[in-house]
Amino acid sequence: MHRSLYRLIRAFAPLGLLLLILANPVPARANTLLVVGDSISAALGMSLEQGWVALLAGRMAESHPGYSVVNASISGETTDGALRRLDRLLQQHQPSVVLIELGGNDGLRGFPINRFRNNLRQLALRSQEAGAKVIIAAIRIPPNYGSRYATSFYDSFGLVAEETDSILAPFILENIATEPELMQGDGIHPTAEAQQTLLDNLFPSIEKALQ
């Protein structure tokens, strides 16, 4: 009697497990694009609705309606600060794509290249470990910080992207930084009129990640 009951339990155990999985499915990863950036992505000097990330959300609503865009950018943010926040952001939003727009403040503060590069690498790797594709947006700093430092700083973006198999987006202020009418009075931040160009610079890389 006991032996027959044991055989019966063994025979139907897989079916019971399948029914349990169907009744409690593992939640799918959210179709979320998380932007982790500094003042350029936080729309400094204008309303958030005017910034390139808000414009991206509008474009995504048409081209990729299943995606949502989360802007976790903070003015003044460095790679140090972003690393402290990243794990919580990844857990909270479970993004499928992470766009890292950071480094400008590191460069302006003269962060050692190795420190900056390692931070950038960790941001990419942690995001990938959480299941996200990673886009790294390149940034340049003024040459008055020294040509050697400025060159090593800019090269870091390509090196880290290659090391981590991330997507490298071009210089985020391409066709903007050299146009005074598209830059705010501080010469560092783009105007509201420049935001569409900024999005156009990044969108091909974003589309590549979404594929």
Results as ranks from 00 to 15, higher is better:
112 P>T: 05
116 F>N: 04
84 R>G: 13
186 D>W: 09
75 S>W: 09
156 S>W: 14
185 G>W: 03
179 E>T: 07
173 L>Q: 10
120 L>N: 11
151 T>W: 01
151 T>H: 06
135 I>Q: 07
150 A>D: 00
90 L>T: 11
106 D>K: 02
121 R>S: 13
126 R>W: 12
114 N>W: 05
173 L>N: 07
165 D>N: 15
111 F>Q: 06
83 L>G: 10
157 F>T: 09
92 Q>Y: 09
164 T>H: 09
110 G>C: 05
102 L>M: 08
107 G>Y: 03
96 S>T: 12
88 R>S: 15
141 I>N: 03
171 F>I: 05
90 L>R: 11
121 R>Y: 15
86 L>A: 12
160 V>D: 11
187 G>N: 03
180 P>S: 01
115 R>V: 12
135 I>C: 06
107 G>A: 00
123 L>W: 06
125 L>N: 13
104 G>R: 03
108 L>N: 01
176 I>N: 02
147 S>A: 13
184 Q>S: 07
102 L>S: 08
144 N>P: 00
164 T>V: 11
161 A>D: 07
105 N>M: 01
127 S>F: 08
189 H>Y: 01
149 Y>E: 01
163 E>W: 08
136 I>N: 10
137 A>V: 13
79 T>Q: 14
193 E>F: 02
173 L>E: 07
121 R>A: 11
184 Q>E: 08
180 P>H: 02
158 G>I: 11
92 Q>F: 07
138 A>R: 10
187 G>Y: 04
162 E>Q: 15
125 L>F: 09
83 L>D: 07
92 Q>T: 15
179 E>Q: 12
77 E>N: 13
153 F>T: 06
147 S>Q: 14
183 M>E: 06
94 Q>T: 14
87 D>T: 14
82 A>M: 08
162 E>I: 02
90 L>Y: 11
191 T>A: 04
184 Q>W: 06
168 L>Y: 09
178 T>W: 00
98 V>E: 13
113 I>K: 03
89 L>M: 15
113 I>W: 03
163 E>P: 08
100 I>H: 04
123 L>K: 05
152 S>M: 14
146 G>K: 01
109 R>T: 02
102 L>Y: 08
178 T>P: 00
144 N>H: 04
118 N>L: 14
112 P>E: 05
188 I>V: 13
149 Y>T: 01
141 I>E: 04
155 D>Q: 15
187 G>C: 04
109 R>H: 08
195 Q>W: 05
171 F>V: 04
154 Y>L: 13
92 Q>W: 05
186 D>M: 08
160 V>T: 07
169 A>V: 09
153 F>S: 04
144 N>E: 04
134 V>W: 08
83 L>Q: 09
173 L>Y: 06
105 N>H: 01
137 A>Y: 10
76 G>W: 11
75 S>M: 10
103 G>L: 00
193 E>S: 13
88 R>Y: 14
128 Q>N: 09
115 R>I: 07
140 R>I: 00
183 M>P: 06
101 E>V: 05
188 I>D: 01
139 I>A: 10
125 L>D: 12
105 N>E: 02
119 N>M: 04
196 Q>A: 15
180 P>R: 02
100 I>V: 14
100 I>G: 03
133 K>V: 10
126 R>T: 10
145 Y>P: 00
188 I>E: 01
146 G>F: 02
172 I>F: 11
175 N>F: 00
132 A>Y: 08
92 Q>I: 08
120 L>S: 10
117 R>T: 15
145 Y>I: 00
